[in-house]
Amino acid sequence: MAGKQPPEPKNMVHQNAILCETVGKENRYQKLYTNYSINPFKEFYVIAGKPNQKEEEGEADNHFLQVIKRANQEPVKKYKQPQTEAQEVGWITKPLLQTDRGDTRLNFFRQNSPITKFMDKAWLEKEQQSMGN
């Protein structure tokens, strides 16, 4: 511990040079936005006005309303083709062939035999008895 030296005092000139360099880099890569608008792709909620404030009536901006309406649509209605690979799955939702639900070769509907009906009733009664206890 004998070799430990006290820390050197901070040089204010060097500290100011570092600060100037940092601020210069930030200003070089930062872009100042002064034109703000509402994001049309985000859900928009209207908040009620103040109760003691008179409401101003004006014309609705039709272009803005159309942009909001289009942004809230599903991708299939907005675009002609899928924009991402994930959208390719399920993009075409219409069936390729019309199916006949009456055709028993491909439609296997649930059928109950007499023994199945009997066991369903027995199981239901057993459940009702156990719930009553």
Rank of each mutant, 00 (worst) to 15 (best):
K42Y: 04
N133R: 15
V13R: 11
T34E: 09
Q30D: 08
A2N: 13
V46T: 10
S130D: 08
E26H: 07
W91V: 00
V13A: 11
P75H: 03
L19F: 06
Q66I: 00
K31H: 04
E21C: 07
A60V: 12
A60N: 10
Q15A: 13
Q98C: 03
Q98D: 13
S130F: 10
I115E: 15
S130M: 11
K117D: 14
E55H: 10
W123F: 12
I18W: 04
S113Y: 05
Y36H: 11
V46Q: 10
Q73W: 00
Y45A: 10
P75A: 01
E85A: 08
Q128R: 12
E125D: 11
V23H: 01
N52Q: 09
Q30A: 14
N39E: 05
K80M: 05
R105Q: 13
K121G: 01
I18E: 06
Q129I: 10
R101K: 14
N72S: 10
M1F: 13
E8R: 14
N39M: 05
E8K: 14
N112C: 02
V46W: 11
R105H: 06
K69P: 00
Q98L: 09
V23T: 04
F64I: 00
E56Q: 15
Q129G: 04
H63R: 13
Y33I: 14
P6S: 11
V13K: 12
M12F: 09
I38N: 07
Q5W: 09
E74Q: 02
E43H: 10
I47T: 10
W91I: 03
L32K: 13
T93I: 08
Q5P: 08
P40S: 00
K42H: 00
E59P: 12
Y36Q: 02
Q129D: 09
E88G: 06
S37A: 10
H14P: 03
L96F: 07
N62G: 08
M12N: 12
Y29Q: 08
K31Y: 06
D61G: 03
G49I: 01
Q53C: 04
Q73N: 06
A60S: 09
R105Y: 06
Q53Y: 01
P95M: 05
P75S: 02
L32M: 07
E21F: 05
N16T: 01
W123S: 14
Q66F: 02
Q111I: 06
